[in-house]
Simulated scan of single mutants.
Amino acid sequence: MRVYPDQLGRHLKPLQQCYLIFGDDPWLCETSRTQIYAQAKCDGFEEKIQLTQENNFNWNELVDEWQAMSLFSSRRVIELTLPQAKPGSEGGAIFQQLMQMENPDVLLIITGPKLAAEQTKSKWFKTLDAKGVYIPCATPEGQQFQRWLDGRISHFKLRLTRDAREMLFSLYEGNLLAADQSLQLLQLLSPNTEINSQQLESYFEDQSRFSVFQLTDAMLNNHQDKAQHILSQLKAEGVAMPIILWGVFKELTILLQLKSALETQQSLQSLWSKLRIWDKRKPLYQAALNRLTLTQIESLLCGASAIELKLKQQGIEDWTGMSHLCLLFDPKAHASLSHIELNE
């Protein structure tokens, strides 16, 4: 059963046989884990066993722990970490064996990185999911992050003006841990007074954490302010230019294939599947396809190539050129900026 982190509290009474915490957001993973352990302690689960699937991991050790009597005559929690989220055929067989040996005195918590869609369809995952709760811990973005932020503001009983909320959103989107720590600080500094953006400026530095994928999504959506903000943060965090160029080339190559198909009146239906574009991401590409011409997309590819050439031949990371490239995802910019050569 899939349960999102903000709903987990409603699915802890009674505790299920196992809980699957998978995702790349450290705050959500740790918060979910803490909630489960808190309820387990209330239910008498006092002994904790921690296992990690490392090289040459002995799966029989998990079976032994499942069947062993507690040293303290209490109920026990077994936490198994799967660093690659790949238990293999042996691990899958062990999971199936354990789920057929229900033990009310043992609670199994399995943790690991974000699962791909195909992994949630695997036999080992379905075996565990049928007896427990799956908690996907992906970092919320956009409106989902805003809802999360509003929820945490209410949790800490803070009063913030609209501009202060907007500033927090801009500063911390992509970094739940920093956002939560900052709200805790605000609770200490201003527990009973309304906080505006001017006060926030004196409290915090910009601690957003973004990925190259968020940058390219902002480009595809033509969210210019957001793209420029993410780009500046990636630069400040020391993200290498080749990584950014990889992401940009990937999206532009996909756009070129899609636009070329449209120009020849081909259906995009087969291309969506061939290019592995999920339904959730189709609106991003559709928006860019509706906005940009084939010539403009080709111009963007030439611009990215010029930045890459400058990097490889001269060792220069052209952040100004990359900022310029972001602007050219807006067709209006081509009329006034396209004459500027990125390889100058």
Rank of each mutant, 00 (worst) to 15 (best):
R2G: 00
L160V: 07
L245F: 12
H155P: 01
S305E: 09
D24G: 12
Q198E: 11
K235R: 14
Q67P: 01
Q184H: 08
L20T: 03
R159C: 14
A218E: 10
L108D: 00
E317D: 10
L252T: 03
E54A: 07
V133Y: 00
I277F: 03
E173V: 09
T193G: 06
A93F: 05
L220I: 06
Y285T: 05
A178V: 06
G151D: 11
L234K: 06
L189D: 06
K121M: 04
Q84L: 07
K332L: 13
D225A: 15
W278Q: 13
Y203L: 05
C302L: 15
D129L: 06
C42G: 15
Q16F: 04
L15P: 02
T264R: 15
D180N: 12
M69D: 06
H334S: 05
D43I: 01
N192E: 13
T320V: 10
G88S: 06
A288M: 09
K114T: 09
I195T: 09
H339Y: 12
E54I: 09
K13T: 13
S73T: 06
Y203G: 01
T139N: 07
D6P: 00
E251F: 01
R209Y: 10
S154I: 07
G92D: 10
W148C: 00
F72C: 04
Q143L: 12
L200T: 05
I307A: 02
Q265P: 06
L200N: 08
D206M: 05
L271N: 08
T264C: 13
K226I: 14
D25Q: 04
W278S: 14
A38S: 10
D43K: 02
G112D: 00
H155Y: 13
T161S: 13
R162Q: 15
E118H: 11
L188W: 08
Q266Y: 10
L160C: 08
F72E: 05
P140A: 05
A178G: 03
R147N: 13
A333P: 00
A178N: 12
Q146A: 13
M167E: 02
I195R: 00
G303I: 02
F156I: 03
C18F: 08
L176W: 00
N222T: 07
L284A: 06
T320P: 03
L12Q: 06
Q233A: 11
L325S: 03
V248S: 03
N55V: 08
Q257D: 09
D150A: 15
D150F: 00
D129M: 12
E141D: 13
I230T: 05
I277Q: 07
H229W: 13
L189P: 05
Y19G: 03
L289Q: 05
E65N: 14
S74N: 13
D217E: 15
F210W: 11
L256T: 08
Q184W: 00
S170H: 07
K312M: 08
